[in-house]
Design a protein around this nucleic acid. Sequence first.
DNA 1: TTATATTATGCAATCGATTGCACAAATTAA
DNA 2: TTAATTTGTGCAATCGATTGCATAATATAA
Lengths: 343, 343
Amino acid sequence: MSSKKTTIHDIAEKLGITASTVSRALNNNPRISEATKKTVLQMANDLNYQPNNLAAALRKGKSQLIGIVVPRINRSFFSAVVRGIEEVANTLDYRVVVSQSSETVENEIAAVNALLNARVDGIIASLVGEKPEDYVHYENVAKKGVPLVLFDRTTNEIGTSQVVIDDYLGAYMATEHLIEQGCKKIVHFTHHRRVNIYKERYRGYFEALKNYDIAFDESLVCEGNMQLEDGRNAIEQLLKAGKEFDAVFSASDYAVMGAMQVLKEKKKKIPEEVALVGFSNEPFTSFTDPPLTTVNQFPIEIGQAAAELFFEILNSKKEKLIPQKTVLQPELIVRASSLKKGN
Amino acid sequence: MSSKKTTIHDIAEKLGITASTVSRALNNNPRISEATKKTVLQMANDLNYQPNNLAAALRKGKSQLIGIVVPRINRSFFSAVVRGIEEVANTLDYRVVVSQSSETVENEIAAVNALLNARVDGIIASLVGEKPEDYVHYENVAKKGVPLVLFDRTTNEIGTSQVVIDDYLGAYMATEHLIEQGCKKIVHFTHHRRVNIYKERYRGYFEALKNYDIAFDESLVCEGNMQLEDGRNAIEQLLKAGKEFDAVFSASDYAVMGAMQVLKEKKKKIPEEVALVGFSNEPFTSFTDPPLTTVNQFPIEIGQAAAELFFEILNSKKEKLIPQKTVLQPELIVRASSLKKGN
DNA sequence: TTATATTATGCAATCGATTGCACAAATTAA
DNA sequence: TTAATTTGTGCAATCGATTGCATAATATAA
């Protein structure tokens, strides 16, 4: 059954030529005559030859593999980014090796190390850590000269290329939209940890209020872990405290879903009494009742952009390449949860 | 900056020993003295040694890579399966290389070929094709002695191990549940193509009706592509035709969402007038209004089971291993869309 | 016709780690 | 004290493809 795998040497022997010639013929080297190429190709086919990339990779020092590290692959945002990366990689004959950090720095370090052992030609990742000491392994990657591109959760501390969306703009558009709908007391859900992306969204919210001369009320800003339960708790507390508000702009779709649930339980009308806007365009947002206004982050495009930056680095001969930062424009998707009838 | 990468030869030279000894020391070979191991480990650390798996893989004929082929990675079911596989693979020091077939046989063939070139130690895949001629590339994989495990969309035509859920049982439970809620005229949404999984779900529906002595009405079976629009169309047509029905069991969560939308537009009460049950436990099903009763396929567990079967094949010395089939039990998740108040 | 350039192929080293076999040194048995 | 083991390392081939350099064969220029 499983006869020994055929190699270029087998092909060479059958044809009475050397492996070098076979190798060159298969790689379409111009120094090989068309006639030879043809016979080699034919014989390769006849012998059911399957190239061994490991050998080529070892010799060339290039594995044609891209390592990807994400917190978890089964989160819609990340899986979509991976899809984007894979699509681009594919067209350039690259494969992607996917690792999950599961939100712990420890796993992340192990994953990066394993990818380096596998001799990936570079890494595309979204950070889990927040503190500088959580970046050292990535700093080492960059220092070793291994191409590194960060996306979404990035940092400027490591001098490496990044792909992000303009979180500030997305938040600004969302808040502005609520204001245009006539909302004046807008609650904001943000993350209790001061991560870039949430800071930026908070800033967008803040600036929009300011530009429209709406008083900023700190008691309307709720910090939490951005999960459904956090949204529920936040709204329940606001209601219990008798706080008045006519809208919620949440930095997460999950948290705002919690708000929606509580508001519906309390028979508040959405959007008439409270308008809702989330962030991320999670797949479920179009299926809620009412459908949820949210901000599209274009995850597939993020992946594509990351891959493109990656190959730019890879193909640059220069030792020191100036790190690039691709900033994608988010899009406000307006749905019924925030669209007042009158408008 | 990027000094030449250190190899075991560098370590050997520094220590005045040979690379063989270093290799054995690093692999914790019992024939190497503890003292030597210690100094080697120390020196490896000092020189910032990073093992090169490519070289080891080439020599050993094992890459420590598993190839995965899925229609699209950014579909919740598939990304969860990948997560399950990755988790198990990780603990055994394996990495996963993910490829997408994007639902075309052509891409699938290219993906499989690329994975074989990359010398993955085996492949875990979900098929896109339905016709036997669409399997040939996988048959070749199996024939070459490369471990192959199929999941979800599988076939018995290739003598290879598989992981599936008991679709029949899932559908039976769903239908039975509706009957227990007092439903007598149950619509069924199924796929227009006669793929295994949909056939089985149809059968579960059919048998449940039969066992409860409920007349089977073929006009209540709607074929389509299982997307939201198909569900909308199906329900609209049934209503237009004046068909009576008190429940919908859909083989897809998306299609039943379409039904929910139309029913709500027509002011039908869910579940009082029409109870709804979907299939797959898509993440959005818990966020709909009312939340959707559905069948959990345990995708992460499918991935884990597939990985376990994979390693079983890999570690079996026997030339011919009898293909195994792991069948997971689905779970009916009852939510408000089908739960009548009275019960 | 001879010198030069061009074309097509071969030679042999190389990428980095692994491993069967050989062998010296240390230990134990006789 | 000598023979038989055991222990710890070294030697060198190997995995399969690539590639700089040489070289033979052919074509072109002088």
